Amino acid sequence: MRRTDFEWTVAAGHPAFSGHFPDQPIVPGVVLLDRALYFAEAVLGRPALVWEIAQTKFFSPVGPGQVLTFQLHERPDTSIAFSVLAEGCEVAAGHLRPGR
């Protein structure tokens, strides 16, 4: 299994913070999934028009300005396992499959 790492800093002005939550901004899980899908397409070397999110777990909240490391593991069946780390701690993980 080949692993590829990507780094992404959550911009303090990210539009998702406007309603999630005003007094204590937290990155919505869908934003983390969006980044994981974006990086998965980079690993595959092509866009996938459809993705199946086989499994996802969120362990800790992510706030503005945090630097995240996305570790993606390409599997022989072209599925991709991912882990999202903030300061060395896992904040989310999952498994993606490109659609057919």
Rank of each mutant, 00 (worst) to 15 (best):
K57G: 04
P61S: 12
H20Q: 04
V91M: 11
A16Y: 02
V84S: 01
I26G: 02
T69W: 00
A40T: 00
S60H: 15
F70Y: 14
D23Y: 04
A16D: 11
G19Y: 05
E74A: 14
R75Q: 15
L49I: 01
V62Y: 08
P98C: 02
V30E: 11
A81K: 10
V31A: 14
F6W: 09
A42S: 11
A93I: 02
G99C: 09
G88P: 09
F21Y: 12
D5C: 13
I53Q: 15
I53Y: 08
A40K: 01
P22I: 00
L96H: 01
V31W: 07
A16C: 13
P47V: 05
V10K: 05
I53C: 15
T9R: 14
L32Q: 14
P61I: 12
F21P: 03
T78N: 14
Q24D: 09
M1S: 10
W8F: 07
L85S: 12
I80D: 13
V43Q: 11
Q71D: 11
V30Y: 07
E52K: 07
P15Y: 07
A86E: 13
W51P: 06
H73A: 13
E41G: 15
R35W: 11
T56D: 03
F58D: 03
V91S: 13
L37Y: 00
G19E: 07
A36V: 03
E87H: 13
R100D: 09
V62M: 10
C89T: 02
R97K: 15
R97G: 06
P25G: 05
H20W: 06
R3N: 07
V27Q: 01
P76D: 13
G63T: 00
S18C: 07
E90Y: 01
E7Q: 09
R97T: 07
R2L: 13
I80Q: 11
P28C: 08
E87M: 13
F59E: 14
T4C: 10
A12V: 02
T9W: 05
L32Y: 05
R2S: 14
E41W: 08
L44N: 08
H95M: 07
Q55E: 15
P15K: 08
W51I: 02
P98T: 00
P15I: 07
D5H: 11
L96I: 00
T56L: 08
V10F: 09
A36R: 10
Y38Q: 14
A81H: 10
L33F: 07
G29H: 04
F59H: 15
M1Y: 04
A36P: 12
P15Q: 08
V67P: 01
V50I: 06
Q55R: 15
L33A: 10
E52H: 10
Q24A: 12
V84G: 01
T9K: 09
R97L: 15
V67L: 13
L68C: 09
V50Q: 14
S79F: 02
Y38G: 10
E41L: 11
T69E: 04
V43K: 11
A54Y: 02
L33C: 10
S83G: 09
T4A: 12
H14Y: 02
H95T: 00
L85D: 12
S79C: 14
G29R: 04
F70G: 03
H95Q: 05
L44M: 09
F82K: 03
A16I: 00
M1T: 03
A54L: 12
A36M: 12
L32R: 09
R75A: 06
S83D: 13
Q71N: 10
L37V: 10
T78S: 15
W8M: 06
